[in-house]
Amino acid sequence: MKKIEAIIRPDVFSEVRKALALEGIDGLSVTEIAGCGRQEGRTGLFRGNAYEMEFHAKLKLEMVVEDYLVERLVEAILNHACTNEVGDGKIFVLPVEEAIRIRTKERGAVAVN
Rank of each mutant, 00 (worst) to 15 (best):
M1S: 15
K3F: 11
I4N: 04
E5W: 11
A6I: 12
I7V: 14
I8H: 15
R9N: 13
P10G: 07
P10H: 06
V12H: 12
S14A: 11
V16C: 15
R17L: 10
K18M: 12
A21T: 11
L22C: 08
E23R: 14
E23N: 15
D26V: 11
D26E: 13
G27I: 11
G27D: 08
L28M: 13
L28G: 03
T31R: 00
E32W: 07
E32A: 11
A34G: 12
R38W: 03
E40G: 08
G41A: 15
G41C: 10
R42Y: 14
G44P: 02
G44I: 06
L45N: 14
L45V: 11
N49F: 15
Y51T: 09
M53C: 13
M53P: 01
M53A: 15
E54K: 00
E54V: 02
K58V: 05
K58A: 03
L59P: 04
K60L: 14
M63T: 00
D67A: 10
L69F: 03
V70S: 03
L73P: 04
L78Y: 10
H80D: 00
C82W: 01
T83L: 07
T83Q: 12
T83E: 07
V86H: 04
V86G: 09
D88L: 01
G89S: 06
F92Y: 08
L94C: 02
P95D: 09
A99Q: 01
R101D: 06
I102Y: 01
R103G: 04
R103L: 07
K105V: 12
E106R: 07
R107W: 12
A109P: 01
